[in-house]
Simulated assay, not measured.
Amino acid sequence: MKPYQQIAIDECGEPLVPIPPEHFSFELPHPYQKLGAPYHNSKADSPYYLRQGVVDSLIAAQMQIQQTHPNWKILIFDAYRPVEVQQFMVDYTFNQIAVAQGCEFPVSEDKRQVIIEHVYQFWAVPSMDRATPPPHSTGAALDVTLLDDNNLPIDMGSQIDEISERSYPDYFGNSNDPQTQEYHHRRQILKDAMIAAGFQQHPNEWWHFCLGDQMWAWLTNHNNSDSQFFARYGRY
């Protein structure tokens, strides 16, 4: 169990709604759908759904970015992710790492344990327990990046879902190299806008933000020792 999963959930019952396309861009076709992820079994026909309150805050973040970069736009890479899709992607990532490491299948138990621990540094456990839902399965977490004036993705120094230390939000923070300093600056623009709108950022992923789920409550409590927040969004 990860620390944030100890946070209690007081489900508010807010609906899952489509993310409005007039405000944002989307990763199309969606990479997980291309791989065959089973969205057809879920309560939404695509990843591009969030709880209503999270959508409202995301719109506020977009407006914040456009105050300083009028033609920049938030690109939604991923949002609502049913537990079945979480399981699919954990299995896919595990297999990719195993192949890259030259493992024979079936993978030996000791090697399997090493790989799965590495996978779970970046992917949440696909738990069906309502007390410990994967963040994306609540409709309160999303993966985002930025598009520039030409509607092209801005280079943030690593790809979304990259399993490496380069994905840590502040990985380039202490660099003296102008190019990597720019990566950090771009990440900060995204982070500052999302935090101002009420989101919290995943400690290991520059692209992952959440609002109202267990991770959000845990990070909020951690950053404000005199507060005691609970999650208001559980598994949807």
Rank of each mutant, 00 (worst) to 15 (best):
L28Y: 06
W218Q: 13
Q96F: 04
E182Q: 13
D177N: 15
M156A: 08
A61W: 05
Q101E: 11
R235P: 00
S158R: 14
R232D: 14
D91R: 07
D213G: 10
Y233S: 00
W72T: 02
T68A: 10
N150L: 12
G102M: 12
V83Y: 02
P82V: 00
Y236F: 00
A124Q: 03
Q64C: 09
P178A: 10
I195T: 11
N41Q: 13
A60S: 05
A140K: 08
L211H: 03
E182F: 03
K73P: 04
P3G: 08
I59W: 10
T132F: 03
R166V: 14
G212Q: 14
N41W: 01
P31L: 00
H69C: 01
A37F: 02
Q6F: 07
A8I: 14
I9Q: 11
H118C: 11
I115S: 11
Y171Q: 13
M89H: 04
D56W: 00
D170V: 15
R51L: 07
N176C: 02
T145W: 08
G102S: 11
S137Y: 00
T180H: 09
P153Q: 06
P18H: 14
E117G: 02
R187C: 12
K111R: 14
L211V: 01
Q86Y: 01
P134H: 05
F77R: 06
D110H: 13
R232I: 15
Q214W: 07
I189D: 09
Y80V: 03
Y32T: 04
L35V: 07
S127E: 05
Q67V: 05
Y171W: 15
R186M: 10
D10T: 11
Y80C: 01
T68C: 09
L190C: 09
T145F: 06
N71R: 09
Q228W: 01
G173C: 09
N41V: 12
Q87K: 10
N95M: 08
N204V: 07
N95T: 05
D56G: 00
E22V: 14
D161C: 11
D213R: 10
H69Q: 01
L58V: 04
G36F: 11
I163K: 03
F105M: 11
P20M: 13
I76A: 02
P3I: 12
P3A: 12
P29V: 01
Y80A: 01
T145I: 12
F209A: 03
H222T: 15
F88P: 09
V107N: 14
L219N: 12
L142F: 09
D170H: 09
I163R: 04
I189K: 08
R112D: 01
A37Q: 03
D226M: 00
Q67P: 01
N150K: 06
P31A: 02
D149R: 13
C103L: 06
Q200E: 12
I115G: 10
Q86W: 03
H202F: 03
S46Y: 07
A231R: 10
E109V: 09
V119N: 05
P203I: 04
